[in-house]
Design a protein around this nucleic acid. Structure first.
Lengths: 231, 231
DNA sequence: TAGTGGTCTAGACCACAGC
DNA sequence: CTGTGGTCTAGACCACTAA
């Protein structure tokens, strides 16, 4: 259970920072001072400081030293929701049903940015829990980037889960928005027309190549989308 | 511009993984093999492998070796938007105006979870760019946790920026939602009643102690909330 | 039990930014 | 310039675990 030395050092320094004992701007002991204080090699002390710098708690400058960073906007981490599993876990019943499947050429600039000269697959469908529709999605997949997508069979799982398990994505971009339910959405979700629905548009790349664009509209109150940062 | 050796090794291995040359499950060369291949010390090869493991691209098991991990739901990183700076940068003019300020005791369970037995500060206000209101927020701050909040003066900056620069937060949780504009929001945003607006509710802790809860409603189309993951 | 990864050391050289 | 951090080496010992 004994922690590695570099981790003990890192925690000790972190404690002095978050407790306020070392306020922002304070110079942290030099690496060679830490080797004396903790009786370790310089690489070990440096490893602890590198972790703190990675976390944004300190800033390091050659010749000057390492300094406690000012609190600043940090990054937030959000789990990419595996909707199938999440809904199944919450409700016990989950199903995805395909309402549209087509292979066609891109028609506008947005779609050409995804598929280039090649064709794309258009998929639309509903995520259901029991009788109620929780999520409606419309997805475009670049066929050239994911040739195997022609074999996708909606029977076994949703397009998102299928892609996730077949393509190692390297970058995802998600845009959040709100839309008023149109007639189709209102009917699917069983809410009044105009009801505010959370919508996300997600673009995925693998090795810099666009793979898919999906727009998902959530039924009001159906799913909590929560992002967390820190610990 | 020459990259560190460990970074060159890491990129080389990453390329073989994401290109599919090494599919999931493939065993990566042992550290001692990499030292021969790249002519480096074991620590240098190990550093590259540790970075890949940190990124979730490989899994390492003692005695067995390192293996390409299966694609799995990863985490998404989102910058906490510094709205003041962002709006100012985009439009050239930014202002925050306070519409409500009160110090009172918590009234419901939600507020008691934030402030405990102590008082809380309630702040409401609008973020403006030029004539148009981009964002309306209502914030509660636990006075016991942030005593200095009594001195907050809305003249210099928004509550969020003030808090960010005064309190080193350790955890933030953000919930995304969509709401229909009520009469007040419609008037502020100059949109029809019922227009769908993106809303986020953000809870912030410092060292495990709740600091603040803020609910922010965005004017339709005012700000793009985008989360990114990967590179 | 043998071999892997995890950690650590005591050196070293270098780029770079304060002094 | 000088001293810091950034990187790298050639060893070492140990914990863990798969064979």
């Amino acid at each position: 259970m004994t922690l590695p030395l570099y981790e003990q050092i890192r925690r000790d320094l972190e404690g002095r920072i978050v407790s306020g004992e070392w306020p922002p701007g304070t110079r942290i002991p030099f690496e060679h001072e830490l080797t004396a204080r903790y009786g370790c090699a310089r690489m070990t002390a440096g490893r602890a400081l590198a972790a703190l710098a990675e976390a944004g708690l300190i800033e390091r400058r050659r010749r000057a030293g390492s300094f406690v960073a000012r609190p600043r906007p940090r990054a937030m981490v959000m789990d990419v929701p595996d909707l199938d599993a999440e809904i199944a876990a919450r409700t016990g019943s989950y199903a995805f049903s395909l309402t549209l499947r087509a292979i066609r050429a891109p028609t506008d600039a947005n779609e050409r940015a995804l598929a280039g000269q090649g064709d794309l697959i258009e998929l639309a469908g509903e995520h259901r829990s029991g009788q109620s529709v929780l999520l409606v999605e419309r997805r475009l997949i670049a066929l050239a980037a994911v040739p195997a997508a022609v074999d996708y069979d909606a029977a076994d799982c949703s397009p998102g889960r299928w892609l996730l398990s077949h393509v190692p994505w390297s970058r995802i971009e998600t845009r959040f928005d709100a839309v008023n339910a149109d007639a189709a959405l209102a009917r699917a979700f069983e809410v009044p027309r105009g009801a505010a629905c959370l919508q996300i548009e997600r673009r995925t790349w693998a090795q810099g190549v666009p793979i898919t664009i999906v727009r998902q509209v959530f039924a009001p109150g159906a799913v909590d989308l929560i992002a967390t940062a820190g610990n």
